[in-house]
Design a protein around this nucleic acid. Structure first.
Lengths: 279, 279
DNA sequence: ACAAAAGTGTTACCCGTACACCCATGC
DNA sequence: GCATGGGTGTACGGGTAACACTTTTGT
């Protein structure tokens, strides 16, 4: 009980609390940015919004916003912003959201010139093909972009060199090309050793659907026979579903068995990817 | 060249810069916390400092401090604080430092009661047995603690429940038990699929030295024969060193071949750990 | 019948496991 | 000699890679 007291009141507490003057210390702003990945028509896409306000008015950027001071942590802010920007109830859809990294270069936001140092906690979200988002508060439009159309590497390199990006792809504001590149690498890596691929497909899904997730993310599909053995032998990756309410197949072909996401989180050993990471 | 202009001056820029009033928006503080792991006498340890000031005066905590507003990013601040708190030139020692996660619960720092919301970017550092640190600025003492002596799980659980930790281990301030637990899990995981184990030993080292790193971190050593085949067959993990300047062995036994760290970063497939992750 | 997509079988080989065995040094 | 730590060899088995083959539907 002595230690409990230290969490509420203890000798000297009044001192350090009073000593702090909110107007004296230079302010930081804390924001969140979201890299939201989904698959549309066999192509990996990311959600971007077109900014309607300065800074970076008219540029494309990641959805995100400010953490509410004293009221929430970054993750809560991320879920809230996601709902505001896309109309999506994240808890209900059951997608996956995880922290990526925090970006804090002083010059990553031009408002540093006004004395505001903006740090941003970035998140990665995986979801099946979502309804097209409505442009929210300060965005003039919002859409999913195929990641191959964004020239992310070149834009990220340009940011690091602090030179303007001169290519044809929609230009990303802030350091969002860097964040998006890091998020993309996280997605690709996580597919290898977790069951997150199942977060990209609607239930019920076929093993072919699941395999096309890997194909979209890696550019190459895992070998078919080995892939299904791997998935089916990983306990709890997918669970078969009996019902015949399979949506009619588009073209000819044998109708697939259908599955749901299982409780397993990890893939050990990992799913193999041809182009392994270089040192 | 049109786009370059947007990075320096563009229509409307003055507006959004002037519109911001540094004293109006409630302030965040941005700090860094460091989980610094090393191995001493076959035991995995973490560096902690005993706080000399409120809040959490007299408690043990992770080294860290404030990010200098407008002057540096979090990583630079981490390296700087590391030098200040331990006298260590990180760039020179060649240890490994990486971002862990950002912690931003409003109540994670009691100064929220004074209106200051403190978010902290945590880092993980791996290093060989370092000289004992000098207690820095606001610390009364600093030392390495064996992680098994810190009762981290219980302390982290207690923090999440917002109940006081009642055990015998040195009590950690703030949410640092949670951060330390996450850092520890990162270390253990990274040993599996990267060559970071070599960051824990002084050069030149023997394969036995390297194997003891895994033993200290995992509580169980990889099987000897397989371990050395794995290490030696991974191109660029270790490079043999010819010199006979091997430090005299303490006890009897065949003198080992010695190695240096190689350029390889990844271990594919990963080093096997008996107790694999549960779902 | 044919194409398309799903699903099954078969073989070879790699690599991790387990365990036995050989080497070099200090006491 | 013998204890101690370092280093090597080898047989077994599971799992993945590669590829051929069969099944079920739509047109």
């Amino acid at each position: 009980m002595t230690k409990r007291a230290t969490r509420t009141t203890r000798p000297g507490e009044a001192d350090y609390l009073k000593a702090y003057d909110p107007t004296a210390s230079p302010p930081f702003a804390l924001t969140v940015d979201l890299t939201i990945f989904t698959i549309q028509g066999g192509v990996l896409t990311a959600l971007l919004v077109e900014r309607g306000d300065h800074p970076y008015k008219g540029f494309w950027a990641l959805p995100g916003g400010h953490v509410a001071h004293g009221k929430e942590n970054a993750e809560t802010a991320a879920v809230r912003e996601l709902a505001e920007e896309t109309g999506l109830n994240w808890a209900a859809t059951g997608g996956h959201l995880e922290q990526l990294a925090t970006y804090s270069d002083p010059d990553r936001d031009p408002r540093i010139k006004a004395g505001l140092h903006v740090a941003s906690v970035a998140y990665v979200a995986f979801a099946p093909h979502l309804p097209d988002p409505q442009a929210g508060s300060d965005a003039t439009s919002a859409r999913y972009w195929p990641i191959d159309d964004l020239d992310i590497e070149a834009q990220a390199d340009a940011w690091h060199a602090r030179t303007p990006y001169a290519g044809d792809a929609p230009t990303l504001g802030y350091d969002h090309a860097v964040i998006l590149r890091d998020g993309l690498e996280r997605v690709r890596a996580k597919l290898e050793y977790t069951t997150l691929a199942a977060q990209f497909v609607h239930e019920p899904f076929s093993l072919g659907d699941l395999r096309r997730v890997y194909e979209a993310a890696w550019g190459q599909a895992p070998e078919l026979g080995n892939f299904r053995r791997k998935v089916l032998s990983t306990d709890g990756f997918v669970v078969p579903v009996e019902r015949a309410d399979r949506p009619a197949t588009v073209a000819g072909g044998r109708p697939p068995l259908l599955y749901r996401r299982g409780p397993a989180q990890w893939l050990v050993p990992p799913m193999m990817r041809q182009s392994s990471l270089e040192d």
